[in-house]
Design a protein around this nucleic acid. Structure first.
Lengths: 200, 200
DNA sequence: ATTTGTGAACAGTTTCACAGCG
DNA sequence: CGCTGTGAAACTGTTCACAAAT
């Protein structure tokens, strides 16, 4: 199969989500355009990259299309382990979130540099002091990290995560993280997002 | 001034942040490459879009460069008002966050469909039941919304926000929002971000 | 000498238009 | 006959390479 270009990947991730929350059996590229704002042509091109053939004249068969995206993007993989680093208000909120239930992602550990906090907080998975970062990540084979530490700790922690072999960081801090290319970063801070909207 | 293309805008937003947290006086495009992972050529091209001329032989003068970006992206504007819609754990955490301090963005209202919650929670700005959405947004001239409602309410709320004239939504839910093009959406949900990382 | 700023070449995306399929 | 799937065209963004600037 051909490699799927970056912009297409991002759209396909959203498309898969859209299909999941859609009661119907089939859907046409024009309907998808109405729902997502992406042109029907771009949608068809994206789908053609999956080399499935799940639609003609009546639109795409949703079940097949969804399966094809999941397969192409590895969304189906065995549980992929994540950890939360930084257990302030935001970290705690994410810790308790049910968003990842019924997704392939599973949070298996939390870290905070404040030992008190890791002892006082309760969660279904263990919480550790940040000094344990490397050993836990390596023994648990954790792939992704959710970064919710304070500004001052962001860059240092990111670097440590990268050198522990973390594949990707979801960066909730407003710091620009400098990490080796092998570690992908997804910036999702409130401030960055507002600035991006504002710059439109 | 020429229009600044989308990818450049995103990089410039991050570059501005980088410059802010950088003690030095000048910086070269190669140094920026090391810090951000973007090639020096792309950095220079981005900066050339700003039509400033703030560097040669010794790199860019950080103060001037920062000012130019701020100006080009409207980051300097008068306070831009935001609201939080959905005061669950995540909404509360953002409510209490100090991230927007010393930014042009200011949260001026919170909403929740549960009236109890808007009465029990305390914050420096007023909290309202969601029924007040339209009137508050219009009288306060709120530009951006931070969406942290439960899944089921996401699409309906987004539509309402759009029809109230909201310019942009920071979408912390994992729903794909269908809104008119005049309303920009920035997707920052944990699940979407992890999927994007995983699809790399 | 070093680094920007930029036109020109290149690469990657999106749009277009239509043949082919159900 | 409507809709997909896809080459070819158009466009947008990136890299290259070097002249200009200090």
């Amino acid at each position: 199969m051909k490699a799927i270009p970056g912009p297409s990947k991002r759209r396909l991730v959203l498309l898969e989500r859209l299909l999941s929350g859609c009661g119907k059996k089939t859907i046409t590229s024009v309907e998808i355009e109405a729902l997502t704002g992406c042109s029907s042509a771009v949608i068809r091109k994206d789908i053609s990259l999956l080399d499935v053939c799940c639609g003609a004249s009546n639109g795409y068969k949703i079940a097949e299309l969804k399966a094809a995206i999941v397969k192409a993007l590895n969304l189906t993989q065995e549980r992929q382990k994540c950890c939360i680093v930084g257990l302030g208000k935001l970290g705690q909120a994410l810790l308790e979130s049910t968003e990842l239930e019924s997704s392939p992602f599973q949070i298996v550990a939390g870290f905070d540099s404040n030992v008190n906090r890791t002892e006082v907080l309760r969660s279904v998975f263990p919480l550790h002091p940040t000094t344990m970062l490397e050993s836990v990540i390596k023994t648990e084979h954790i792939k992704y990290a959710i970064l919710t530490v304070p500004q001052e700790e962001a860059q240092g922690t990111a670097q440590k995560l990268s050198s522990c072999g973390i594949k990707g960081i979801v960066n909730f801090t407003s710091c620009v993280l400098t990490v080796p290319k092998k570690t992908a970063v997804e910036n999702v801070s409130l401030l960055t997002s507002l600035e991006t909207l504002s710059a439109n």
